[in-house]
Amino acid sequence: MQDPDFQPPVNPLPPIVTLTFLAIAGIEAGLSLGEAGMIGGPGAVGWRLGLIRDYGFSGQIFDWMVMNGTWPLQEVIRVFSYPFIHLGFTHALFAMVLLLALGKLVAEALGPVVFAVIFVLAGAGGAVIYALLLNEEMWLAGAYPNVYGLIGGYSFVMWRQLAGTGGQQYRAFSLIAFLMGIQLIWGVFFEVGLQWVAELAGFFTGFGLCFLMAPGEWARIREGIRRR
């Protein structure tokens, strides 16, 4: 019989966050073990490049689809598949750490469905905006636009809480401001590319989706319409 007063030392993750983490971690584990020569034989060294080639997101391929008005499934799927393939173990590790921390906050505050929608559409929105605004040859790989979408969801929750308590709402954007500041400083010393455009677009996609999907937002919108 379970003790009703027992509290686990670590709060369990919402299942949807765990499944998303395991999908990313499983792929990265296979790629890393292959690169280390532990599985797959000599050919495993090229697995990562092969997956990026087949499932990474290319803005130039997207531009080609727009220009020709044709949308082959094997190319469209890149919009949703690129977050699960990373450039290396460290690249994946930071994404997974952020996913666990922010995913738990968003899923518990807004619900697992909202988490899933933000994760998927922030990644897709980040990739599409990256392709439309830029003419970059660099392909997108990794879950960072998706994670930035979760930062948008977290910022929305903080924004609403600060509004309810009379706090300064701009504080809700401290995390994204800090991360963008780090990106700027890092870019001064190193060539980091323009992937931050997809990440920032993911943030705004996640934040914007909360107006449509966060619990109570439709009631708030209807009430605002009635008052007018």
Rank of each mutant, 00 (worst) to 15 (best):
I118K: 00
Q168K: 14
Y144F: 12
G164I: 02
V147H: 08
G37H: 01
S58I: 02
Q169Y: 02
F115S: 04
L98M: 10
L162G: 04
Q183C: 03
D54E: 15
A141Y: 10
F57M: 06
D5F: 13
I61R: 12
V197W: 11
F80L: 07
M96I: 07
F80A: 07
G206K: 03
E108R: 14
F156Q: 07
A36E: 12
Q161P: 00
L31F: 05
H86F: 11
R226S: 12
K104L: 03
A92L: 00
G41K: 03
G187A: 05
P72V: 07
A36N: 07
F89S: 07
W64S: 15
F80G: 08
I225N: 08
F84W: 14
A44P: 04
A107F: 05
I16H: 04
K104E: 10
R78T: 12
F84I: 04
Q169C: 05
G56R: 05
E28T: 12
P15D: 04
A127T: 01
L51R: 01
P72N: 09
W186C: 09
A44F: 06
I182W: 14
H91E: 01
W64P: 04
L22G: 06
L99D: 00
Q168W: 13
F80Q: 00
F62M: 12
T165W: 11
F115G: 05
F80C: 01
C210E: 06
Q183V: 13
L87I: 11
W196C: 06
L140F: 00
I176S: 03
G56Y: 06
F119D: 10
T70Q: 14
L102C: 05
G88L: 02
R222V: 09
F156L: 05
P83W: 00
L110A: 14
G224T: 09
T90Y: 11
V10C: 06
R228D: 12
G69I: 01
F156D: 07
M38Q: 13
I176D: 03
G181C: 03
G167F: 06
T90E: 10
Y144D: 15
V128W: 07
I77K: 13
E136P: 02
Y148M: 13
T165H: 13
L87G: 15
G152Y: 01
L99F: 00
G193P: 08
M96E: 00
F89H: 02
F80R: 00
C210N: 10
N68Y: 09
P215M: 07
